[in-house]
Amino acid sequence: MIKTKGLKFNYDNQVFFEFPDINLISGENLLIIGSSGIGKTTLLHLLAGLLKSESGSIELFGNEISLLSSHQLDRFRKNNIGIVFQRPHFVNSLTVKENLQLAQYIAKKKDNNRIESILKNLNISDKANKKTNQLSQGEKQRASIALAIVNSPKLILADEPTSSLDDNNCTNVINLLQKQATEFGAQLVVITHDSRVKKYFKKSVEL
C-alpha cells in the first residue's frame, strides 16, 4: 500500500511544489505524468526517501517514512525500494555482476542464483562479466533495471525511463518493467513527461 497526503516541498524558499495525493492498493502500478520543471524528480526523491518533505505524509507499506531518520531511511530503502534512473548509473570499476553483488552486499543479502536468474530474465547473461561502460545503451538500461530489482524491492521507482528511446524501445522498456514488477511481486511507479507511456497504465496521476 502506497499513500501520500498533502505533500509539499520547496527549494530554498524559492521554488514551491504541491503534489496531488497518491493512493495505491497493493499490486497496483502508477504512472505520474507531468511536463518538465513541475517537480517530477522531486516527487520521486520524496517517495524514495532521498528528500524530506516540508509537510504532508508518505506511507509506504505501513511505514510513515517522513518520520524516519536518515539512517533508518537508508535501511528502509535497501529493503524496499529499487530506483531506475533516467540515465543508467553504475559503479564503473565493477562488472555488471559485481554491481549486483555490491547491491546485495549493501542490503546484507548474498544470492548469486538470483543475480543469474535476473540477468537471464533481462537477456544480458552474457554481459555479466563485462564492465558497465562496455555495454550498449539498451544493455545499460536493462542492467540498471537489474540493479533496481536485485534486492526484491516492494516498490520500483522509474524516473523518465523512456525519454530518450524510440517508440519500439519505449514499449519494450515499459513491458520489461511491468513484467519484472509482476514477476517479483513489486509495485511500479513510473514518473515521466512522455505521453506515449500513458496507454500502458490503468492508473495515472497528472502533476
Partner: peptide, 14 residues
Amino acid sequence: KYEMALIRTLGASR
C-alpha cells in the same frame, strides 16, 4: 559523484 549517489540509493549508509 553519480556512482556514489547510486550506492547511497541502493541503501548504503553515509
